[in-house]
């Protein structure tokens, strides 16, 4: 089996002379949440449509579970759940009836599939309310229920929190998280909201003007963007004592005999280094890391930021 659930090779979609997706290489790992982050019009939806065979790529290749998507659609697509734009629900039927139609067409993995899906998104089963009477948030929930009804191994969700209120966003976020951690699903999710992706995703791909600018795990990004001062000194035990005595500082962690991190950036580094040297320590490195996640994205996307 391939290492990646989804892998694309130089995926490109060209409309006329405009490339809406250009040479995209993304790698979605098994059992993780991959967040595709980009501003409006960056090419997120087009990418997802190509992953599902809803749009043919101009060039490049999509591989899912190690098999090329083209020619294997019939085998691969039933194992994927997706939410792209709004699915076509009948306005004059209830939520349960709408799902039943899809269940008949696509098949389901268990007897209670419809009820389970509705429970998961917090909609009532066998409710009398018609789809046309649903609020935007409820319609969005139903669309998510449809995406998960057949218990797919891979979920592709395009801006799943659109139209939800803050409580709804928190709920959807937590159940997406649960689908991944409690059920081992692989999830690809797109958003233009940095904080949303930072809360949810394990791996992040930043896409801008159709090109992938960066692909990294959140842990790596956070390590890069955490605010701290890194010291390499001749003795961390003495350094700890000096920080406590001279600066009344306790927010540090000792890594080994020579390396430590200070989490408070309030004290000028020069003063600390001077104090260390005056007390007979050798300081071979003092490095300030203070780029926030937001700063980092701004830099990567060329200054305009993603908000």
């Amino acid at each position: 089996m391939s290492k990646y659930v989804i892998e694309t090779k130089n995926l490109t979609k060209q409309y006329g002379t405009q490339k809406s997706v250009a040479d995209l290489n993304i790698h979605v790992k098994q059992g993780r949440i991959y967040g595709l982050l980009g501003r409006n019009g960056a090419g997120k939806t087009t990418t997802m449509k190509m992953l599902l065979g809803l749009t043919q790529p101009t060039s490049g290749e999509v591989t899912i579970w190690g098999q090329p998507l083209r020619t294997n659609e019939k085998k691969l697509l039933p194992r994927i759940g997706y939410l792209i734009e709004s699915p076509g629900f009948y306005p004059n039927l209830t939520a349960t009836e709408n799902l039943r139609i899809f269940a008949t067409l696509r098949g389901v993995p268990s007897r209670n599939a419809i009820k389970n899906a509705l429970d998961l998104v917090g909609l009532p089963y066998k409710d009398k309310k018609l789809f046309s009477q649903y609020s935007l948030g409820m319609k969005q929930r139903l669309a998510i229920a449809l995406a998960i009804m057949h218990d797919p191994e891979l979920l592709i969700l395009d801006e799943p929190i659109n139209g939800l209120d803050p409580i709804g966003i928190a709920e959807v976020r937590s159940f997406i998280r649960d689908l991944c951690t409690e059920r081992g699903k692989t999830i690809l999710i797109s958003s233009h909201i940095l904080s949303e992706i930072a809360l949810l995703a394990d791996d992040i791909g930043i896409i801008d003007h159709g090109a992938l600018l960066e692909e990294e795990s959140l842990a790596e990004l956070e390590a890069k963007s955490s605010r701290h001062i890194r010291f390499t000194v001749s003795s961390t035990t003495q350094a700890a004592r000096i920080l406590e005595r001279n600066f009344h500082e306790t927010q540090f962690t000792i890594q080994d005999d020579y390396k430590m991190r200070l989490h408070n950036l309030g004290i000028p580094v020069g003063e600390i280094v001077t104090a260390f040297v005056e007390n007979g320590l050798t300081v071979s490195e003092a490095y300030v890391c203070e780029e926030s996640l937001e700063d980092y994205f701004k830099r990567v996307t060329g200054g305009e930021g993603i908000a």
Binding site: M1, R79, T104, R106, G107, P109, H150, E153, R183, K185
Partner: peptide, 12 residues
Amino acid sequence: SGNLNRRMLTKK
């Protein structure tokens, strides 16, 4: 082969 996420879809 270990993919316990795999489901078989079946119609009525």
